[in-house]
Structures are given as structure tokens and as C-alpha cells.
């Protein structure tokens, strides 16, 4: 490997990508790379929201401290992220790079577009976490098995280095579970071959533009003030992994779901039935848990 190998992780708050990127840095150092970096992306988003983390790995000390824009590898630990924004996910990914995905459905794979020469690897990280009980506060720590998949795909770090990194990072009683997850992932990761038309020119690296309506400092007032609107952080419906669905047959229109919704994402329709605003519902499941008639079920959100 020449120069610096850069990695971008995509996940949701609570899935462990920041932790995993630290473990990868330790493992790479164990492997003999003198220059390693793990960079968390610090944002306003919370549990469930899309977040990123980054790594740099090099045989020489790393003096760069800016963000990663053109990664050699992209790891997507939550497949719903890829299906929502594949162009965002692969932005800046270099030619001949690596895309490492958690359990992408075949329909996701068939619509995938990657830069030319890229290798795509897939592993079922969700099942591995469920099987091993690798969960914290109800969320699967998907990023841990993805370390195994990354090792398999890139051959940059060995299982042994990852194992040592895990040992130095976690308390003794949780080491085994994490190591097992990495091992299982390593052995079950497979390479996927896409159709020729799925390979394109790379999407150039870009700095994110979050506020398109402001172009220049002359557009700014002296005092920064914000105006009320739905979606002050965006369409938070994309944080959701499970969606609440109301069964109108069972619903008694008691409106407990509306009352208890922390997001104010449940409206009441003209017939008095609750109506979930899927643009913004984060899928916390409070309504499902509070419905006295069990009229709300939480279904996997395929989007």
C-alpha cells in the first residue's frame, strides 16, 4: 500500500461506528502501520440519525488533520442508509476502492452504482449481532462485525490485530462477544459482482452544503436567528428502522398514541383516527408500547 488509505463509515447513532473506527485504528497500529487516525464526525444528530466516522491508515506518520473527502473504502453498517442515499454514501469513493455493506438486499445491490474498479463486499452483520446478542440499549452494534468484513475485503488488518484491539478496548466480559462477531463476519463476508453498467466514474468529493438558501455572507443578518419549521434537522423519518402501523380495526381513537408521541409526529384525521407522519416519525416505538388496544405494530421499515 502506498500513501494513506482512507476509510469512511456510515451508520446511525448508537450502532457503534465511532467505537469501531477507534478499534480499527488500534488494530492497524498493531498490524504495523505507524500512522493511524480515527476521526468521529461531531454533529447535532442523536441516536438513530445518520452519522459518519473516518479512518486514515499509513506506513508513515499522518500529518493531515482535515476531514476525509476521498476515501479508499466506504463501510455502510446500516443498509437503509445505502438505499436512501447511495450517491451520498459513495461520494468521493476512489476508483478501485472498496465498498463494504451490511446485508444488502438483492434489490439494493441491483440498483447500486459504484466507481469503476470498485470491489463490493457484503456481510449479514444484523443477523450476527442478533445471534450473539451484541446489542446496547436495544440497538445492534452493527459496526463491530463490519470490522471483520473490512478485514476480509481489504486485507489491511488481520483478525489477530483486531482481536488484540478489542481486548485493549473492552472490559474482559464483553471481549468474547465482540471477537466472535468479528470472526463470524470475517468468514461469512462475500464479494459481489455487479453488472458492467453499475460501474461509473467516481462521484467527485464534495463538502456538504446544508443551507442552500444562503450563498454569501451578505445574505446574513447581524444576529443569527432561526425560524420555526417542521424538519428543523431534515426528514427524520430516515432515522427509523421500524415503522409504527395503525390497525384501524382495533383502534378505539383514544389518542394515547398522539398524546405520548415525543416527536409530535402523530396527527389526528377527520374521522378521529391517528395518522402517523412518516416523514418525521423516528420510529421510537412509544406509541406501539402505549396503545391500550395493541392496535399499533412495529414493522421493519423497508423504505
Amino acid at each position: 500500500m502506498n500513501g494513506i488509505f482512507e476509510v469512511r463509515w456510515h451508520g446511525r447513532g448508537g450502532q457503534g461506528i465511532v467505537t469501531a473506527s477507534k478499534i480499527l485504528a488500534i488494530a492497524a497500529f498493531n498490524e504495523g502501520f505507524v500512522g493511524v487516525q480515527s476521526i468521529p464526525w461531531i454533529g447535532a444528530e442523536r441516536r438513530g440519525a445518520q452519522i459518519e466516522a473516518y479512518n486514515r491508515i499509513s506506513y508513515a506518520p499522518i500529518l493531515l488533520h482535515s476531514q476525509v473527502y476521498a476515501p479508499n473504502a466506504v463501510i455502510v453498517v446500516d443498509q437503509s442508509i445505502l438505499s436512501e442515499n447511495s450517491s451520498t454514501t459513495i461520494r468521493g469513493l476512489k476508483k478501485n476502492g472498496f465498498l463494504v455493506l451490511n446485508a444488502a438486499h438483492s434489490n439494493v445491490l441491483s440498483s447500486l452504482r459504484v466507481p469503476e474498479g470498485c470491489s463490493v463486499y457484503v456481510v449479514d452483520a444484523t443477523s450476527i449481532c442478533l445471534e450473539l446478542g451484541l446489542q446496547v440499549a436495544g440497538l445492534e452494534i452493527l459496526a463491530i462485525p463490519m470490522l471483520g468484513a473490512f478485514a476480509k475485503a481489504t486485507d489491511l488488518v488481520s483478525i489477530k490485530s483486531l482481536e488484540n484491539a478489542i481486548k485493549s478496548f473492552f472490559e474482559a466480559d464483553s471481549v468474547k462477544k465482540n471477537v466472535d462477531a468479528i470472526l463470524k463476519a470475517y468468514w461469512s463476508t462475500r464479494k459481489v459482482h455487479l453488472k458492467p453498467e453499475q460501474y461509473l466514474s467516481p462521484i467527485p468529493p464534495s463538502k456538504p452544503v446544508r443551507i442552500p438558501e444562503i450563498h454569501h455572507w451578505t445574505d446574513l443578518p447581524p444576529v443569527p436567528t432561526s425560524t420555526p419549521s417542521k424538519g428543523s434537522i431534515g426528514k427524520t423519518g430516515d432515522w427509523r428502522t421500524h415503522k409504527p402501523v395503525v390497525d384501524r380495526e382495533k383502534c378505539s381513537k383514544c389518542l394515547f398514541c398522539w398524546m405520548y408521541c415525543p416527536e409530535a409526529a402523530i396527527n389526528v384525521d377527520s374521522d378521529g383516527f391517528p395518522e402517523i407522519d412518516y416523514d418525521y416519525c423516528k420510529g421510537c416505538g412509544v406509541c406501539f408500547n402505549e396503545c391500550p388496544r395493541e392496535a399499533i405494530s412495529m414493522l421493519v421499515d423497508e423504505k
Binding site: G13, G231, I233, W258, C281
Partner: peptide, 22 residues
């Protein structure tokens, strides 16, 4: 809950904010 909905339907905390789930 039903009565309060009639009394105070207006929402002043709008959805799509950056609070954690739940």
C-alpha cells in the same frame, strides 16, 4: 387525551427536530 386534543390541538414543538428517538 381526546378532550385535550380538542382543547389544545396546536403543536409548538414541531416534528423533524434533532431530539433522540423516544
Amino acid at each position: 387525551a381526546k378532550k385535550v386534543f380538542q382543547e389544545a390541538p396546536e403543536e409548538y414543538v414541531l416534528p423533524g427536530n434533532s431530539a433522540c428517538q423516544g
